[in-house]
């Protein structure tokens, strides 16, 4: 978030409401999909895909990551990279 002028904040609030609606809809969607008995691999991919979208929305708008200072990205970059390393290498073994 860059500015704190009232107009900007009101604009932010509008976005928050929309994000909330999207999150709720995606929650319903992911539960709905789970009732269609997809093959395991497909089910995992769909569920993780939806979860990734949802978490990206939270991170981007609620946590203001969509418009954050560079230094924060630099802190998060190694964390995300090593998170993936951990996941990929351990599951590969």
């Amino acid at each position: 978030m860059s500015g704190h002028t009232p107009e900007e904040i009101h604009h932010h609030v509008k976005i928050y409401i929309r994000v909330f609606a999207a999150l709720a809809a995606l929650t319903v969607l992911t539960v709905g999909v789970s009732y269609i008995k997809l093959p395991v691999m497909a089910a995992i991919l769909v569920a993780l895909f939806i979860a990734t979208i949802k978490s990206s929305l939270v991170a981007a708008f609620f946590m203001h990551l969509a418009n954050e200072k560079k230094i924060i990205y630099w802190i998060l970059l190694p964390a995300v990279a090593f998170f993936l390393v951990l996941l990929v290498l351990i599951s590969y073994s």
């Binding site: 230094i71 802190i75 190694p78 996941l87 351990i90």
Partner: peptide
């Protein structure tokens, strides 16, 4: 940097939390 100390600090903390849950998620997968 454009950020306050507390903001940088909390993001460091969250970065570490990512790794904490990362450890547990990788345990789940394995």
């Amino acid at each position: 940097t454009g950020v306050t100390n507390s903001k940088l600090g909390i993001w460091c903390f969250l970065a570490s939390e990512v790794m904490l849950f990362g450890g547990l998620f990788s345990a789940y997968i394995l």
